[in-house]
Amino acid sequence: MSTLQEVGDRDGWRCWLCDEPVDPDMSVNDPRGPSVDAVTSAKPKKGAAVPERLAHRACNTRKGAVKAVVPWPSHLFVVDPAPIVETVERLTRKGGREVVARCPSRDDADEAAAWLLDRLSRLAPDLRATTEVKPGGGQHLVTLVTR
């Protein structure tokens, strides 16, 4: 198990759930204080290390022992967005490509694709991925592609 300082330094002192800064000097008992979340979306193999991520105490408590949800921001015009955490887990295991959102305009799709890559750079820094935006059916599809 890593120390809070090690996990915080590795994650750049940003909460993996809400993507907001975490103050390393705040009390761990404060809702905005730092905590380490043992990310257990699937049962780890025997002897495998459970990944640890930095989270605010309140974000970690709110998540509890259920699957984490990383929301798409409300300012993006995205229709039928894919669940980000599950998509990242699938692409990490299998690779490939997956449509993650539909948008009404190219500008909306480009903005969503840029946001997603920026968010993934902190959420899943080891995932080597790009995005593609292609028109289809009167809308624009945002696809996440692993390299």
Rank of each mutant, 00 (worst) to 15 (best):
M1P: 14
S2H: 11
S2F: 10
S2G: 10
L4Q: 01
L4Y: 05
Q5L: 15
E6A: 15
E6R: 12
E6L: 12
E6F: 08
V7I: 12
G8W: 05
G8L: 08
D9H: 10
R10P: 02
D11I: 10
G12S: 05
G12R: 03
G12C: 02
R14S: 13
R14C: 15
W16R: 07
W16A: 06
W16Y: 14
L17G: 00
D19L: 06
D19H: 15
E20Q: 15
P21D: 10
V22F: 02
P24L: 05
M26G: 00
S27K: 08
V28T: 15
N29P: 04
D30R: 09
P31R: 02
P31V: 01
P31E: 01
R32T: 03
P34Y: 03
S35M: 03
V36T: 13
D37R: 06
A38H: 15
V39W: 13
V39E: 13
A42E: 14
K43V: 15
K43T: 14
K43S: 15
K43Y: 08
K43R: 15
P44V: 06
K45C: 00
K46A: 15
G47A: 07
G47C: 02
G47S: 08
A48P: 01
A48K: 13
A49V: 07
A49D: 07
A49F: 07
E52Q: 13
E52D: 08
E52W: 06
E52T: 06
R53M: 06
R53W: 04
L54D: 00
H56I: 05
H56D: 01
H56F: 01
H56T: 04
H56V: 10
A58T: 04
C59M: 00
N60H: 13
T61C: 05
R62I: 11
G64E: 11
G64H: 08
A65M: 14
K67V: 10
V69C: 06
V70H: 06
P71K: 11
P71E: 02
F77Y: 11
A82R: 07
P83H: 10
V85I: 09
V85H: 11
E86T: 15
V88C: 04
E89K: 08
L91I: 02
K94R: 12
K94V: 12
G95H: 04
G96T: 09
R97D: 07
V99S: 11
V100R: 04
A101W: 03
A101C: 06
A101R: 01
A101K: 05
R102I: 01
R102T: 09
R102E: 13
C103T: 10
P104M: 11
P104R: 11
D107W: 02
A109R: 04
A112N: 04
A113L: 09
A114N: 14
W115Y: 10
W115R: 09
L116A: 06
L117Y: 11
L120T: 08
S121G: 15
P125D: 03
D126I: 00
T131N: 05
E132S: 02
K134P: 02
K134H: 13
G136Q: 14
G136H: 13
G137C: 06
G138H: 10
G138V: 03
G138C: 09
G138R: 02
Q139W: 12
Q139R: 13
Q139Y: 12
Q139H: 14
L144W: 03
L144D: 03
V145H: 02
